[in-house]
């Protein structure tokens, strides 16, 4: 099945590139450290500052991960091979989205305890909610990121272009994730910010739906 094959291919490429993965994790931890120092030493609203720091670190690290995925695909020639196989473009897109989602989820799992410790926030009770918010947000990030990364393939200064296009597009996701994480870490209830869950879900659906129509054209352009 092409979906599974693409996920396996992308994850294998990342696994072979352990040095980059280690650097990515160090980079995300450094972001948390720098922002915690900037906000500290005495935090005014630790839950809010921790939520903003966590997601800022994740979004910056995510762009590096997406860019590296593109480079690895280009170097290995795996992307061309998959395209030439005549596989359904949307299945390829979904496979790459899931692989990127797993990469981002890995970074999240690494950064979450660091942010919790540095800002002294979060408890086990809030953890399922935070993980749920993260899953929904990272799915959207992966979908939009994969779409834009495919667009930026082959362009000069693609890291910059990816940031210029991706970050503004992800603002609804980012604000939603920060608001929901803040609510969970400060009060435990997500109800007051329930509308933001809808915003994140809509962003996810729109990203996945746009790709269903457009990924074929993006692939065609990169041939």
């Amino acid at each position: 099945m092409i979906l599974i094959d693409v996920i396996r291919k992308d994850l294998r490429l990342h696994a072979r590139d352990a040095r980059f993965l280690a650097t990515l994790l160090l980079f995300s931890a450094s972001c948390v450290l720098i922002l915690s120092v900037a906000f500290g030493p005495s935090f005014q609203d630790p839950a809010r500052e921790a939520a903003a720091t966590l997601w800022a670190a994740l979004f910056f690290a995510g762009v590096l991960g997406l860019t590296r995925s593109l480079e690895l695909e280009g170097e290995s020639g795996g992307g061309d091979a998959v395209r030439l196989s005549g596989a359904d473009p949307y299945a390829i897109f979904l496979g790459k989205t899931i692989a990127n989602f797993l990469l981002l989820a890995g970074v999240f799992v690494f950064v979450l305890p660091i942010a919790s410790v540095f800002f002294d926030v979060g408890d086990l009770e809030a953890l399922p909610g935070v993980l749920g918010v993260a899953a929904l947000t990272l799915l959207g990030y992966a979908a939009w990121g994969t779409l834009f990364a495919a667009l930026a393939r082959g362009l000069k200064a693609r890291e910059l272009l990816l940031s210029v296009l991706l970050f503004p597009s992800l603002v609804p996701l980012w604000i939603g994730a920060v608001k929901c994480t803040h609510a969970l870490w400060s009060g435990g209830s997500i109800e007051p910010v329930g509308d933001w869950i809808k915003v994140i879900a809509v962003a996810d659906v729109v990203g996945l739906a746009l790709a269903a129509f457009l990924y074929e054209y993006i692939q065609e352009a990169s041939e």
């Binding site: 667009l151 296009l165 746009l210 457009l214 054209y217 993006i218 065609e220 352009a221």
Partner: peptide
């Protein structure tokens, strides 16, 4: 093609 996809 890339510009059109972006325009959408």
């Amino acid at each position: 093609t890339i510009s059109s996809v972006l325009g959408i």
